[in-house]
Every structure is written in C-alpha cells, then in structure tokens.
Design a protein around this nucleic acid. Sequence first.
DNA 1: TAGATTGTTAATCGATTAACAATC
DNA 2: TAGATTGTTAATCGATTAACAATC
Lengths: 221, 221
Amino acid sequence: MDEKDISRAVIRRLPRYYRYLGELIEDGVERISSNELSARMHVTASQIRQDLNNFGGFGQQGYGYNVKYLHMEIAKILGLDRTHKMIIVGAGNLGQALANYVQFEKQSFKVIGLFDVNPVLKGLSVRGIEIRMIDQLESFVRENDVEIATLTLPKSKAMEMADRLVKCGIKAIWNFAHTDLDLTVPSSVIVENVHLSESLMRLSYNLSHYQKEHPQGGNTQ
Amino acid sequence: MDEKDISRAVIRRLPRYYRYLGELIEDGVERISSNELSARMHVTASQIRQDLNNFGGFGQQGYGYNVKYLHMEIAKILGLDRTHKMIIVGAGNLGQALANYVQFEKQSFKVIGLFDVNPVLKGLSVRGIEIRMIDQLESFVRENDVEIATLTLPKSKAMEMADRLVKCGIKAIWNFAHTDLDLTVPSSVIVENVHLSESLMRLSYNLSHYQKEHPQGGNTQ
DNA sequence: TAGATTGTTAATCGATTAACAATC
DNA sequence: TAGATTGTTAATCGATTAACAATC
C-alpha cells in the first residue's frame, strides 16, 4: 500500500467522497455508479474514476461500486482505520469547542488531553478530559504516545509550542494559529494549517465580486 | 473594478499574500520585490507577479512593490475595505469561540448577533454580544442589514436555517456544518464551507503516507 | 449473451513557470 | 545612464475530461 505521487488535488477530494459515501450508507444505498455519484457531488464521473484508480480498482464493470466497501477502502487510504491519539494545546474557546466535538472520535481521532497556561483552568474538565498545565506537556506526550497536537493558541505562542512538541516526538500538528508552521518544522512532522480568516476572506471576495452571477457550487475550501 | 474569470487557485492565494504583507508591515519593511517575497512564502516569483497582475499593476519596475500600498490594494480586492455585519447561528462552543475571536473585527467582519434554540442561553452575552432566541432571527437580519451568517450548528439543522436565512435576504453563509450547502442554496447567495473534519483527514492521510519523506511546505488547506 | 460500467489511455484544458522586453 | 525588477508573452507542466476497449 505505498502509492506514490498522488496529487494534492486528489487528496483534497478524498474526504469529500468519504462523506458522501457515508451519507449513502445512511440512506441504505448499496451500490452506486460513478455517473450517479458524479450527479450528486457535482463533479465529473471521469474524475471520480481517475481519482479512485490512483489507489486501486474498487469497482466492478457493469455493476459500479459497492458503497460500504468503497467507504471502507477510502477510510483505509485516509488512515481512519486506526485510532489517532490527539491533544489540544490551548484550552480557550476554540480548543474547548474542538474537544467537545464528538464527531472526530467517530473518525478515529481521540482527544486524550487538553493543555493551557492559564492556572484558572487547572483541573477543569471538558467532556471528561482534564485540562492540564503546560509544564506537563512533554511527559504527557511521551507517556501516552500522542500522535497529533492541535494548536489553538495565539500566533505569538504557537511557534514555541510547536518546537516543544517536535522535541518530544509529536508526529503531526493541526494548526489553528495564524502562522504557516510548515516552514519552520522538520519535514518529518506533518503540519495541517487551518486558517479560518483566510476562509472568511475568500467568502468576502466572492461577496464583492460575484454578487449577481456566481459560479456553480463546490467546496471552495 | 470588475475583473472577470479569476481562477479559484489565485483567489485562494490572495489571503495568504495579505497575511504575509501584514507581517512585513509589522516588521517595518517598506518595499519588497517579488523575488524576496517568493523566498519568504515558498512560491515562485513568477506566480506572485502573475497573480497580482490579474488585478492590476501594483509594482514598479526596478523598485518592486510598496508593502503598505500592496497590502491595501489586496484588502480592497478581498472586500476588506468595508465592514461586513455578521451573525452567528448556533451559540455552542464553536459559535462562542468564533464570537470571541477579535481578529475578525480587525479584518472588518463585525459580529453583531448570536442565535440559538437553547433557552438556557437566552440573554447571556459573549464579548458584549447578546445571545438571542432563534425566533428573532428574521426580524434581526432584516432590521440590521446583516450580510453574513455563520452556521455553527448540527448538520441536521443547518439546511433549515440556511433556508430561513436566504428568505430574509442574507447575502453569504459561512458554513461549519458537515454539509455542502452550496448545492441547495440559490446561486445569488455566497457559501463558504469549512469542513474541519476534512482538514483533519488530510492530516491523517499525510501521517499515513509521508511519515518519512514528505513534500515541501505550503498550506494544504 | 447483451448491457452496463469500469479501468485506462489519449486529448484537452488550465495553471504554473520561464523568459524577456518594457520601464522605472 | 546602468541596474533592477516589473508586466506580460511564450513554453511547460499537470490536472481534468473524453473516449473506448476490457470485462463483469
């Protein structure tokens, strides 16, 4: 299972396929053709088949795709077939919001710790997850084999925390601070940036430019 | 100022230029060449010049770009030169987190109302913004000329709320529910989807596939 | 088997990069 | 003026779409 050179564009679409297939399962749909799926998702059937065939032949000629099977295979591709231990660094509003977000757990991301510098928060819990002080960060990460750290703290502190996390062996950083961490972290550490401001600015751009006639749907993310 | 046919890819990069230019201003940098900027941002100088020239010639041969001026021009392009009134529908953790997020206001997005169905929240305030019950939604939107509605509520209720918002004249929806609203809202209404799960899944993909050697940085968002 | 639909190759389209003449 | 760097055209690269033979 070592696929090489899959383009960003394809990887960006995989989670969306996964979501739509999940909905089909909920609706009790057993099989689907690339054509039907393309109509639902507003992409071309050709693109669906091309995308999937980067990873293998999951369909059957004359039949289409088995929804449950394809859903499961995409889960494997995305690494959702095993649990990822996650901590959240920064237990402010956003950090707590993410900790409360049960959906992630269904997708095999398990929040096992929350960290903050603010002593007022010490000992408090969110959804049964204790808020710890930041000085316990390193020992906690090492002892619990934490794989992913979510950074929900001010830009000014994000880089310092990233450094500390890298040093104690974190494998991936999910970054909500307004900074491109990818530029300053070793390339062995995965960084996924979420720039909410940028998303809002794109909305604003479209608001100013496409007030009347605007292009067909699709996730602008 | 009616530029046509600007590609998605270009628009996606604009907010990032804007952010880097903002940092340069903070650092007291007055002018910058496409070459210097390209080194900082890890994109090609050619791409920067091409991107900007979609909107006009903001530089000067032999000199480069005036940082403040370019920053201001990109603000105009993104529609950040005027205030956008925004409400947040769903005053749970995520809704409150976003309401507390002061940064948006600097970028001209002003949260003027929070809405929820939960009577427990009635009358409470977040950063001076009152939480109102959902039955006041329509009148509030109309009376206050609300432009943007942020949806931070469960998928099951998102579509219904989107419909109500569209009916009372909302211009744009910033959608955090796990649903592609763009497919079911009139094309005159701008929709920007934020799928946090999808971001986390991309992280997970990279975690499984690029543990050792992984491609050069850049915002995978 | 005949019909349907995939997997895959080829054609097209669009986006990125390179090159350079224009010009500050 | 000479040097630097843009704006812009041309060349390259990659991604999307179309077409169709393979096959269930």
